[in-house]
Amino acid sequence: MITVEHLTKTYGPYRAVDDVSFTCKPGAVTGFLGPNGAGKSTSMRIMAGLTPPTSGSATIGGVHYRDIPNPGTQVGVLLDASAQHAGRTGREILALSALTMGLPMSRVDEMLKLVSLTPEESKRRVKNYSLGMRQRLGIANALMGDPKILILDEPANGLDPAGIHWMRSLLRHYANRGGTVLLSSHLLHEIEVIADEIIVIGRGKIVAQGTKAELLQGAGSYVRAEDNAALSAAATAAGLAVSPSGIGLRMDAEPLEVGRLAAQHGLVLAELRNADGAGLEDMFLELTSDTQREVATPAGAQA
């Protein structure tokens, strides 16, 4: 288990992490969401003992990272896939980790196979790796000691769709075996698919946390009708909140209620589903609106 209590980190007058508290439980994937500069990476660096906190604490299994004997066998960490020795081969990097942790060299081959790096690729120098290959090597290194806890910062960066699917399956299996996963990502869809718990951070503060179902409760429905205008008018008359969403509508109601409304008014529906996907994105943008650099441009507006 990862336990973060009243964690604060300041750099002069700048407060990168501001009184953050949360827990990551065994058997679950916890998604850590936030815009650039929100405090995600700083929090993870403190957990991994790379950055000292100004106040508060981050413990792993009840102790600080620095106090864990042979920590690689307890905690797997990947904070920056590019921060690997560019002049060494992938195999050499894993072999050095195995030696450091007192593991047999057979573990190197097991990890290379697990992350689908071929024998040929493992002999290349890391400077010649693509970002996706570096991510795979970093994940192999994090898993080398068969740890109970994983702390991964943006591990999907550089992976193609097949690689993202592979990573998702790997982490899901790891959590199902009782492992604890803290996963930071900007890919909201990936968090939606894999995370059991979600933590949203903005300007160094936790702005929301809970299960995916709790945070997306009331996300409503996405609906596309043959006559969107007529459906929108009917929903408004029924007291439902309606807003445009792509080529359809977003409604503050469950799909069953929307379907009944359409049937009552003889309206033909082309699509009707839970708005969870849009709900996660909307929730994220709403909760972190004061930290966004970009301002959404209405459809059809001129640049």
Rank of each mutant, 00 (worst) to 15 (best):
N128W: 08
R136I: 11
A229R: 05
T236S: 13
I139N: 04
S169W: 00
S232R: 11
E214H: 03
V126H: 01
A162F: 12
Y174H: 10
L137V: 08
L99R: 15
D160K: 13
L159V: 03
I198S: 04
A234W: 07
A195N: 07
G163I: 14
S184A: 14
E190I: 11
A213V: 09
R172A: 03
A213Y: 01
L99D: 15
S116A: 13
N128A: 15
E192L: 10
A140C: 09
V181L: 04
G178K: 01
R168D: 00
A234P: 11
R172F: 02
A230P: 14
A233P: 15
R136W: 05
A238C: 02
I201R: 03
L231S: 05
R177H: 05
K127A: 11
K205N: 07
R172Y: 02
E214Y: 00
G138H: 09
A229G: 07
E154C: 01
A229W: 01
N157L: 01
A195Q: 06
V181S: 05
G178W: 03
E154S: 02
W166H: 02
A142G: 09
Q135K: 00
L152W: 03
S184D: 04
W166G: 03
I206D: 00
L240V: 08
D146M: 09
M111L: 09
G202P: 13
I151Q: 13
G202S: 15
R203F: 05
H189E: 01
K212L: 12
L131G: 04
S232Y: 04
L187C: 07
D109M: 07
S122H: 06
G210K: 04
I201H: 03
V126N: 08
L117W: 06
R124K: 04
H189L: 07
L231N: 10
L182W: 04
Y129K: 06
H189G: 06
L103Q: 09
E120K: 14
G220W: 10
G202V: 09
L143F: 05
L143C: 06
L137E: 04
M101F: 12
E154I: 00
L215Q: 06
A230I: 10
E226C: 06
P147K: 00
V181F: 00
A142S: 10
V108H: 13
G239V: 13
L117Y: 06
R124P: 02
V207Y: 11
S97Y: 05
R125G: 11
S116I: 03
R172G: 03
P161S: 05
V126T: 09
R203T: 10
G102F: 05
G239F: 14
A238T: 11
I198G: 03
E121I: 08
Y174E: 14
S169T: 14
K123F: 03
N141M: 08
L137C: 08
G158T: 04
L143S: 01
A230W: 07
